[in-house]
Design a protein around this nucleic acid. Structure first.
Lengths: 204, 204, 204, 204
DNA sequence: TATGAATGAGCATTCATTCAT
DNA sequence: CATGAATGAATGCTCATTCAT
C-alpha cells in the first residue's frame, strides 16, 4: 500500500545499476560497442530492454559510464605494483598477475574496445585519451632503470623493453579473450623473459 | 558495347574476382565480418555493390572464399621457414619476419576474425577448425627440440615455449592492427628472447 | 501515516482530479493528444505518472473526460451572450471578448484538437459530433437576422456572414495558440467588420 | 543486359524524388513533422520505406528539403500580386485567391507546421526565421498606404489592418486544412471587408 | 492514496540482398 | 558483365501502461 521508502528505492536502483553495468561490461568487452546489441545486455542482465533505458539514456551513455569506471581502476594497478614489497622482479611478476586476473582482463578489454572501435562516442575518446601503453610505460620506466642498475633487467633500451612487455601482455589478453579462451594466457614468468637480464632467467 | 568473346569474359571475371578478394581482405581483416559492409568492399574494389553479387552470392560466401584462400597460404609459411638456410635461430627469425610482414599480417588477421567473430558461418568454422596456434605449434616442435639439443633454444618445456612465442607474435599483430598502428609491432629479435637459451640472447 | 477518513479521501480525490484535469487541459490544448505525453501531464500536475492512472485509466480516458467537461461549458457562452444587455453589436462584441478570453481559448483549442487530431478515440468523436461552427451558427442566426432588420448587420446572406466570422475568430485563436503567441489575437472590433453594415463600422 | 543509361537514371531519380516530395508535403502539412511517420510517406508515395532513405537521409532532411522548396515559392506570390494589373482591390483579391489555392494552401500549412511544431530541426528554424506574417505585412504595406490615399482601403492603422487580414486568411486556411475540410475556406471577398473602406464594400 | 520500477509495442534508420535494365 | 533502384529484416530508442510496495 505504501510506496517504497527512499532507502529501498536506492537499494533497488543500485542493485539494478550494478547488474546492468556488470552485464554490459562482459558484453561490451567481448563484442565491442558496435556489435553489442542492447538486447544482449538486457538479456544478460535479466531485464527488459526498456528498463535499460531507465538507467542509462542510451547505449553510448552506458558505454561511457563503463569506460569511466574502468579508467578509475586503471591507475590503481600500477600504484599497487610500485608499492608491492620485494625485488623488482617480484613487483613485475605481481603486476603481471594482477593485470591478467579475471577482473582486470575485462576492464582491459573494454578499454581496448574503446580505443580501437570505430564510431565510439567522442566523450569516450576524451576519457581514454591519456590511457595508452605509453602511459603505463612512463610509470614503469623508473622501475626498469632501477632494475638495470641492480642487474635484474636486461641492459637494452628500457623503453623498448617496456613496450615489448606491455605489447605481449596486452596481446595475450586480447587473444585469450577474443578466442573464447581457446588460447591460454601467457605464463607471467615466461613474459618476464622479455625483460630479464639473461642471468636472472629461471626455468618456467 | 561490342560483346566480349569468351576468353575476354573469363579474363574479366578472373580480374574482377581478384580485385574483389583483395579489397575484401583488407576490409574484413580490419573490421571483422560483422562490421564489414558490402558497400565498404565495393567501394574499396571500385565497383558497384550490385556487381559484388555477380561474383559472390553473399557476404558470407565472399568471406568463406577469402578464408579458404588464406588457409592455402598458411601452411606455406611454415614449410618455407623449415627450408630456410641457416641456424635454427635464423630460421625462427626469418619465420617471425615473414609472419609479421604486411601481406601475412592481413591473412593472419582475417583468420583471427574468422576464428573469433560471432555469427560467422558454420562453413568457415569448418575450414579453420584445424588451423590454430596448435597447428603451427606442432610444425614448429621438431625445430624447437632440435634447437634444445643444439643449445640454442631454452631448455624449458618446448610446447610451452612455442605457445608463448606464437601467442606473443599473434597478440602483437592483433594489437598493431586494431589500434590504427599506434602500437608498433614487436621487434622479432625481442620476441625471440621468449624462447632462446639465455646464453644465446643478443643485445637488441 | 494516519489513515484518512472517508471524507478526507473524497476531498483528496476531488482535489487531485481537478489538479490533473487542469494540468491536462493546458497540455492537451497546446500539443494535441498524440504529442501529449503522460509525463508532461504528471509533471504539470506535480504528481507521479503512476498516480495519473489511479484517476484515469488511460490517456484516452483522461482526454475524453476533459473534452466532456469542455463541452458542458461550450453552450453557456452562447446563452450568456444572448442575454447580454445592450445592442446587437454589444452582444456580439461581448461574445467575441468572451470567446477569446484566456480560459475559453483553452477550451476552444481542446475541442479543436479533439475534432482535428488523428487517432482520437471514437468516443470523443461521438461527444463533439454536434459541436461545430454550425452549432454556434444556428444559435447566432436569430441575432443576425434581427441585426439585419435593425440595420446593424450587413445585408448579405446571414449564414455566410456568421460562418465567416466564426472562422476568422477560431482561426485567429488557433494561430495565436500554435505560434507561441507570436501572432496576436485579432482585435474583436476588427473582426466585427466582417459582419457589420458599412455604416456601422467605427474606427479601430 | 545493359544498365540504365544516365538519362534514364536521372529520370527515375527525378520522378521518385518528386513522388516522395509530393507525398511528404501532404503528410507533413496535415500531421506535422512529429506525427508524420515515415511509413505514412512511403505508403503515400507507393514505395517501400527503405527507398525513402535512398533519396533522403532522414525524416529531418526530407522535411528540410520540403520547407526549403516551399520557401522559394513564398516570395513569388507577393511579387506576383504587386505586379497584377488592376486596382488595389483587384491586386488584393488576386492575392487572396492565389494564397488560398489548393497548391499554396499545402505550402502554407507546411510552413506553419515548421514554425509551430516542437522538435523541428534547427536548420528549418533558420530557413523560415524571416518568413512570418510580418514579412508579408512589410511587403503589403506600400500597397495599403497607397490604397488609403485612393480611398479604397479603410483609414485605420495600416499595420493593424494588414495583420488582421493576414491572420484571418491564415487562420481560415489552417482551420480548413486541419478539420478535414469540414470548415470551408472563407470567401476572399468577405475577408476583404476587414480592410476595405466602408464605401467600397460590395455585396458578397 | 502514492511512487517509481518494470514491461513491450511502435517508429526511425541501416544494410544485405534482389532485380530490371 | 555492370549498375543502381528497390525491398524488408533487424536494431536503438520512446513512451503508454502495469504492478509491487
Amino acid at each position: 500500500m505504501a510506496p517504497y521508502n527512499e532507502d529501498q528505492l536506492l537499494a533497488i536502483r543500485d542493485e539494478r545499476r550494478e547488474q546492468i553495468l556488470g552485464a554490459a561490461l562482459g558484453v561490451f568487452a567481448r563484442h565491442g560497442p558496435a556489435l553489442t546489441k542492447m538486447s544482449m545486455i538486457s538479456q544478460a542482465a535479466g531485464i527488459s530492454h526498456g528498463l535499460l533505458y531507465h538507467y542509462f539514456k542510451s547505449k553510448d551513455e552506458l558505454f561511457i559510464a563503463l569506460v569511466s569506471e574502468a579508467m578509475l581502476g586503471a591507475g590503481d594497478a600500477v600504484e599497487e605494483m610500485l608499492e608491492h614489497p620485494g625485488s623488482i622482479i617480484d613487483k613485475l611478476r605481481h603486476f603481471l598477475h594482477d593485470a591478467m586476473s579475471v577482473e582486470t582482463r575485462l576492464l582491459f578489454l573494454l578499454i581496448h574496445q574503446a580505443r580501437t572501435s570505430h564510431g565510439v562516442p567522442e566523450q569516450v575518446r576524451e576519457i581514454i585519451k591519456d590511457y595508452s601503453l605509453g602511459w603505463f610505460a612512463a610509470r614503469l620506466k623508473p622501475l626498469f632503470l632501477q632494475g638495470q642498475r641492480t642487474g635484474e633487467i636486461a641492459s637494452d633500451d628500457a623503453d623498448q623493453l617496456i613496450e615489448g612487455l606491455l605489447t605481449a601482455v596486452s596481446g595475450s589478453m586480447l587473444l585469450h579473450a577474443s578466442d573464447e579462451h581457446n588460447i591460454p594466457l601467457m605464463n607471467p614468468d615466461h613474459l618476464l623473459r622479455l625483460v630479464l637480464a639473461p642471468d636472472h632467467i629461471q626455468p618456467l
